[in-house]
Design a protein around this nucleic acid. Sequence first.
DNA 1: CTTTTTGTAACTATCGTGGTTACACTGCTA
DNA 2: TAGCAGTGTAACCACGATAGTTACAAAAAG
Lengths: 147, 147
Amino acid sequence: MQISSRFSVAVHVLSLLALQQEDDVLLTSERMAGSVNTNPVVIRRILGQLKKAGLVEVRPASGGTFLTRRPADISLLAVYRAVEVVAEGHLFSVHDKPNPACPVGRNIQAALDDTLQRAQTAMEQVLAGATLQHVTTDILAKTAATG
Amino acid sequence: MQISSRFSVAVHVLSLLALQQEDDVLLTSERMAGSVNTNPVVIRRILGQLKKAGLVEVRPASGGTFLTRRPADISLLAVYRAVEVVAEGHLFSVHDKPNPACPVGRNIQAALDDTLQRAQTAMEQVLAGATLQHVTTDILAKTAATG
DNA sequence: CTTTTTGTAACTATCGTGGTTACACTGCTA
DNA sequence: TAGCAGTGTAACCACGATAGTTACAAAAAG
């Protein structure tokens, strides 16, 4: 099982917002959906989560959507947490209720927990070290290169 | 979405095998299921994957199951790979088919790929650094401590 | 007041998981 | 060699998450 694409869609949407021109046409959920190639409702749902996390501000009516911070101040970990693709601290699921009458069953959870936690943290630290700025810079570089 | 418990069950089963006494009663899928607290078929399915990965040897009939290597030579990453909880190199799923007519849509996948790959690798490196031996040692220590 | 867009609810299809039953096959053992 | 304990697997089910879709009320801006 993989981590939901909500995360990559969220980064995509935030990149669009980060690169949006002041004088450009407003970025509606419909336009974003066009770039992501999905349904506007899917975008609005994710936008709702990003809003709840304080990453974006959405103006209802014919308003538009904007970042609340500079791209350099938005880490991919913040986005990852915002869309809740993985419940905090539970990347790995461990079978609950092993048999307490067995030494292994009684202690396996505790014996595994430390390692799994470290594995998860190692992954998240990489996300913490990357920002939306890095992504958009990369996109601009690639756009310039390939036309 | 989390990583399947197949992984933790596999480590549980391997721990049972590692700690099994020579003169002990044979570890059947039924007994292991008793310790994990699940159905024997679930155990057999996982044993099948561990066997395919060359981590255990299973003697059909009234045979029993054994590790093919010493616990110190079985990394948790090998177990993780064996049970295929995550397709190799694809911990994160990225939305396919973004709009190629949009600069962001055209380059988001490549722009994200490097970071996501590093995040995944960081996680796997922690698993690579832990062995079945570490787990069983920990279990024995906890068993001795709590009785 | 009309128009545009957001916010949500509700429903759907699809997929992975984990549990369960059923049964053929294997190989020891009496 | 017949019996039987245990494995290997197929088939099916229930459950939950995902992602897509339709529908519509609520919000503002003109």
